[in-house]
């Protein structure tokens, strides 16, 4: 600032403000990295590097179409949960109960009663059951948070405990095997050589992207997460919107439960353990702000793929799950530190 301190005439002030505003225009060296496109590019590069490591260390066992499908099938379930989580986090909340909801949904849609109904009527009964249970849990979360004034962390922590407990009660802690042939057949298909559950993941991601970026719902999510007070004063029904966000993630959990049931051919109260951590990690390294107001579906998808590929590379090299966890933790920390560094620089200019 080379202005002399004595100038404060209106004209001089206006000129200064304009000059400062213009400075923000200048494309900086880091502008690309800061943009969401740049962030996604960074994630793609990271994923690429991971693949290179995979090829070098495991060779053809990694660079194989079957292995690629294995990665995608594993990514699909947690991916659908993470898409839902992206919405909740973008809207300024958090959902710790996703894994428990997946377990409860998987158990509920594989009880003898549900399976009998599915055999008598249509396999979609199972899908309906899972989605309804998931959405119902989300509704309870949302109502508690929006109208009960319980902070999201606590409300969903309570749901985490009770939903898994309920799943154990219903299943009597036994693994419930799917014996609905029509269901198994439907999910065994591989259109264009790609498993159904991968297609579901692709579809949910696409819908999620459109919902977040092209609809009033998405815009309101960004507003509610970015500044709830401003959103309220602008006339948005923040409470109702918050409920909808938790219902949305609940429905995603229901869908994920069905995918998991089809992949494992079982429903179990142990399904979805620690999904909440995997989903939050994927969302955060994807570039969604944990404090809300900014979210990216593409980033989340890439985040999920990075973690799943990492697991695959480790497995192919016969490295322990424990070592994997250590690296996962490191990735989260590095990714977040990098994001904060970039965010701070953009504040300074």
């Amino acid at each position: 600032m080379s202005d002399t301190p004595t100038t404060s005439a209106p004209a001089a002030d206006t000129a200064r403000v304009e000059r400062e505003a213009r400075r923000d225009d200048r494309p900086g060296r880091l502008a690309l990295l800061r943009s969401s496109t740049g962030h996604n590019l960074g994630l793609i590069v990271a994923l690429g590097l991971l693949c290179v490591v995979g090829v070098i260390t495991a060779g053809d066992r990694f660079a194989d179409i079957d292995n690629a499908m294995t990665i995608l099938r594993l990514a699909a379930v947690i991916g659908v949960v993470s898409i839902g989580m992206t919405f909740v986090i973008t809207g300024g909340g958090i959902d710790l109960s996703v894994g428990a909801i997946v377990a409860l949904s998987s158990v509920w849609c594989t009880t003898i009663a549900t399976q009998t109904m599915a055999n008598d009527n249509h396999w979609l009964v199972m899908v309906g059951a899972a989605v309804l249970v998931g959405g119902g849990c989300g509704l309870v979360n949302g109502l508690l948070i929006a109208y009960g004034g319980v902070v999201p962390f606590i409300a969903t922590l309570a749901m985490l405990a009770s939903a898994r407990g309920l799943a154990e009660i219903i299943s009597e802690r036994r693994t419930q095997i799917v014996s609905v042939p029509a269901f198994s057949d439907a999910f065994a298909k591989e259109p264009l050589g790609i498993p159904i559950i991968v297609w579901i993941f692709i579809l949910v991601s696409a819908i999620g992207w459109v919902l977040l970026n092209r609809t009033t719902f998405g815009r309101r999510t960004l507003a509610v997460g970015g500044n709830p007070e401003a959103a309220r004063l602008a006339g948005i029904d923040v409470k109702r919107h918050t409920v909808l966000l938790y219902v949305l993630v609940g429905v995603c959990c229901g869908i994920a439960a069905i995918m998991l049931v089809s992949r494992t051919t079982t429903g179990s109260s142990t399904h979805g353990l620690l999904y909440e951590l995997d989903a939050i990690a994927a969302v955060v390294i994807g570039g969604t702000l944990l404090s809300g107001g900014r979210g990216t579906i593409i980033g989340t998808v890439l985040g999920v793929l990075i973690f799943t590929t990492l697991s695959n590379v480790f497995a192919l090299n016969n490295l322990s799950v424990s070592a994997q966890s250590v690296v996962k933790g490191l990735i989260i920390v590095v990714a977040v530190l990098l994001q904060q560094r970039l965010a701070r620089r953009s504040d300074v200019t």
């Binding site: 960004l222 507003a223 970015g226 500044n227 401003a230 004063l233 107001g293």
Partner: peptide
Amino acid sequence: KSQGLLLDQAVYR
């Protein structure tokens, strides 16, 4: 800033 605007979002939004 705290009650009126979504600071990080575009003007048109």
